[in-house]
Simulated assay, not measured.
Amino acid sequence: MKALVVCLDGMTGVLLAGPAVRAVAAGADHVTLLCGPRGADAAALLPGVDEVLVWDAPWEGVRPPTVEEADVDGLLRRLRDAAYDTALVLPTSAHGPLPIALLLRMARVHRIGAEGADLPATLVDVGHPRLPARHDAEAGLDLAAALGFAPRAGDDGRPRVLPAPDTTGLTGNGPYVVLHPGAGTAERRWDAGRAAGTVALLADAGHRVVVTGGPDESELCRRVSGGVAVDLGGRTDLRTLTGVVRAADIVVAADSGPAHLAAATGTPTVSTCSPPARAERRGPYGVPSVQLGDPAELTPQDVLRAVQKLTKDGPA
């Protein structure tokens, strides 16, 4: 059986899709994950994925492409040529399943499942209403089960990633706390001064700190590190960052992606909080975590208290 899992969300959504992907892989001969460009690097880290198909949907993201730029005809050709037996459409943070379900039907996918009630049978063969108070990781497994895919025996249903590289050469020896101050949007990004104060406070409390960030965050990481922390700004791709967060005691992150990456490696997290309902649905899953408030109001003392709480409570 050839199966297609569709998750057009960003890094967070793709990582939370991992448990459902593994369930599909337990019952399929070949699994393709169709994702958007924002989730492609994370998709390559998921166990159970045989192939990653990247497509920039004209309804996803802050600046979606036009229909012409998206090359819908090209996507349809690739899907038809692959001849998928079944497709599992996981919800994104902003849009429902019908646009992609229509394309899947046009591509002659035989059986399509998606989350939702009263979905048109002409587009969706199995519509599964979301159960109350379900996290996205759990809801994905529910949908997979509705399509007939159950996890392998012993699978705990937590997000996971492929084994990470040893990054001791970057971080140095000994325990440490990761601080990731950057974010994909300005409103989530931590103020550099407050983040630097957090590094200093954590160091004063006896924690060795490693600051991480993407290539466009090198200057931010340099300012935040302040000569106190190990500065890895711009020095890690996503796979290498996986090794850095896996070996950390705790990861403190302004953005949801690094927090979920840490959770997928089993590392406790401290992260800034979306509205409570969203945090319950899309917060770090399966590890001890503390959700903090608005990053504009976040103080170094708030972060230190959260780190101390996780240190005291220990692993789940």
Rank of each mutant, 00 (worst) to 15 (best):
Gly169Leu: 06
Gly233Ile: 08
Leu162Ala: 15
Leu179Pro: 05
Ala254Pro: 00
Ala195Asp: 03
Leu179Thr: 03
Val209Gln: 00
His180Asp: 15
Leu238Arg: 09
Val245Leu: 03
Thr236Met: 06
Ser218Gly: 08
Val224Ala: 07
Arg208Phe: 04
Val177Gly: 04
Ser218Asn: 06
Pro215Lys: 02
Val224Cys: 08
Arg239Met: 09
Ala248Ile: 03
Leu220His: 07
Ala254Met: 00
Glu187His: 14
Leu238Gln: 06
Arg235Gly: 02
Thr171Asn: 05
Gly226Arg: 01
Val245Tyr: 04
Asp249Lys: 14
His180Arg: 12
Thr212Pro: 03
Val209Pro: 06
Thr198Asn: 10
Leu202His: 04
Arg239Lys: 14
Val244Phe: 00
Asn173Ile: 13
Arg235Ala: 14
Gly182Thr: 04
Val252Trp: 02
Glu219His: 09
Ser256Asn: 07
Thr168Ser: 15
Ala259Ser: 15
Val230Lys: 04
Val209Ala: 01
Asp204Leu: 02
Glu187Val: 14
Ala203Arg: 05
Gly227Trp: 05
Ile250Cys: 13
Thr236Gly: 02
Val178Arg: 03
Ala229Tyr: 01
Thr168Trp: 05
Thr168Gln: 15
Val252Ala: 04
Gly243Trp: 03
Val199His: 05
Pro163Trp: 05
Leu202Met: 05
Ala203Gly: 08
Pro159Asp: 12
Pro181Cys: 10
Leu232Arg: 00
Val209Lys: 02
Val245Lys: 01
Thr242Ala: 15
Gly226Asn: 03
Thr240Glu: 15
Leu241Glu: 05
His260Tyr: 13
Leu220Asn: 07
Asp237Arg: 14
Pro181Met: 09
Cys221Ala: 09
Val210Glu: 00
Val228Thr: 14
Arg222His: 08
His180Leu: 09
Glu217Phe: 07
Thr242Lys: 07
Gly197Arg: 11
Gly172Cys: 04
Val251Thr: 15
Thr168Phe: 06
Leu238Met: 11
Ala253Leu: 06
Arg208Gln: 06
Arg246Val: 03
Ala196His: 15
Ala183Lys: 04
Thr236Val: 10
Val161Asp: 07
Ala200Cys: 07
Asp255Thr: 12
Gly243Lys: 03
Asp249Cys: 11
Gly184Trp: 12
Val178Met: 03
Thr212Lys: 05
Ala183Phe: 04
Thr198Met: 11
Leu202Gly: 02
Gly197Ala: 10
Ile250Leu: 14
Cys221Asn: 01
Val251Ile: 10
Ala164Ser: 15
Pro165Val: 10
Gly234Tyr: 02
Leu238Lys: 08
Ala248Pro: 14
Ala200Asn: 05
Gly197Glu: 08
Ala196Val: 06
Ala254Asn: 02
Leu201Lys: 08
Ser218Glu: 11
Ala247Cys: 09
Gly172Thr: 06
Ser225Gly: 11
Asp249Phe: 07
Ser225Pro: 07
